[in-house]
Design a protein around this nucleic acid. Structure first.
Lengths: 172, 172
DNA sequence: GAAAAAAATTAAGGTAGTTTAAGAAATGAG
DNA sequence: CTCATTTCTTAAACTACCTTAATTTTTTTC
């Protein structure tokens, strides 16, 4: 992460809300320790998790951050965490960055895109049980750290049904 | 697209397969005219569309292209099209590119990521009917050009059920 | 422009996942 | 440690969406 630390480190506690809908996102967040989540609340009041960001991940509303439109998502700490801010002025205009830094950003976008595409495929083609198994294999450490409720929201099922899935898998 | 046309323009006909699972992707594709689709076939033989690429979009298996792992997807023309190849040697090593070109790539990844994230949210939080309405509003020109079957596969329902959704919407 | 092939429609029956609700277990606060 | 709160589990009734299959419509091909 050479050169990406122009901004200060901040300490935040579990439950702290860094970003919420309606505002234009002024920052992205880079997680040094702990874990954040981004999520939306749908028209029926249900929470859907867009992304988890444990150590070394970036999180934020890229759409709002990039195009100066009001954000639609929440960003919240799910553990006590240390983060650094990624300020808009720096990253919106890539021209201002060194070529190396642009490459670094580009690689982060690309890897994030690859992960997002895989998730789309998984949502389109796998059952909830398979998505849960995939999650446990892809993010074994997160499975330990996260509440079932959060994992359920991420893979797109109710906590009740995930509970049932787990019971079935234990029996096997 | 200044400077991105190092490669030749190719003309392909509807139905032509540019890429298939198992091979390591040697190229990405930039669409000048026409339309391509990328898709997977799941373990039950069902097709799931990952992306449509009409004029000015890029398409390909970024994961395979980037990390030299065997591809898992098909890329196929759904209209007669003109495309240019995006060769791996150029884009895998961003170092070799001019800063401007890196910025251009970064922006394409970023915009693609924003679109992919929106799709994840939509799959998690919206009903099939709402996803169809969103699709018609987001891609009005594609709705005209694409067969119902393809749209159904993209939004994640069977053609039969999309047909039913349409009937309901016409009645309203 | 006629025959063949592919796509779309309709409907009945089925299933994966949701809803609701209530009790048990784990976590958090003082 | 203890009470309050949140999370997890279980189960029964329900619904969004799927499957199958037959018919109609559209598109492709020669």
């Amino acid at each position: 992460m050479k050169n990406l630390n122009h901004s200060n480190t901040q300490t935040i506690v579990k439950g702290e809300l860094l970003s919420s809908p309606g505002k234009i996102a002024k920052n992205g967040y880079f997680v040094k320790t702990g874990c954040l989540k981004s999520y939306i609340i749908d028209s029926e009041g249900k929470e859907h998790i867009i992304q988890f960001a444990p150590e070394h991940w970036m999180i934020g509303d890229l759409n709002s951050f990039t195009f100066d439109v009001p954000s639609e998502i929440y960003v919240e700490a799910i553990e006590d965490s240390e983060i650094t801010l990624i300020s808009k002025s720096e990253y919106q205009n890539l021209d201002l960055l060194e070529k190396e830094e642009v490459i670094e950003m580009s690689n982060k976008y690309r890897n994030n895109l690859i992960a997002s595409n895989k998730r789309v495929i998984s949502l389109l083609s796998s059952t909830a049980e398979q998505r849960y198994i995939d999650f446990t294999e892809t993010y074994p450490t997160l499975v330990q750290r996260l509440r079932l409720k959060l994992i359920a929201s991420y893979i797109g099922v109710t906590p009740e049904y995930l509970s049932e899935i787990r019971r079935k898998l234990v029996k096997k």
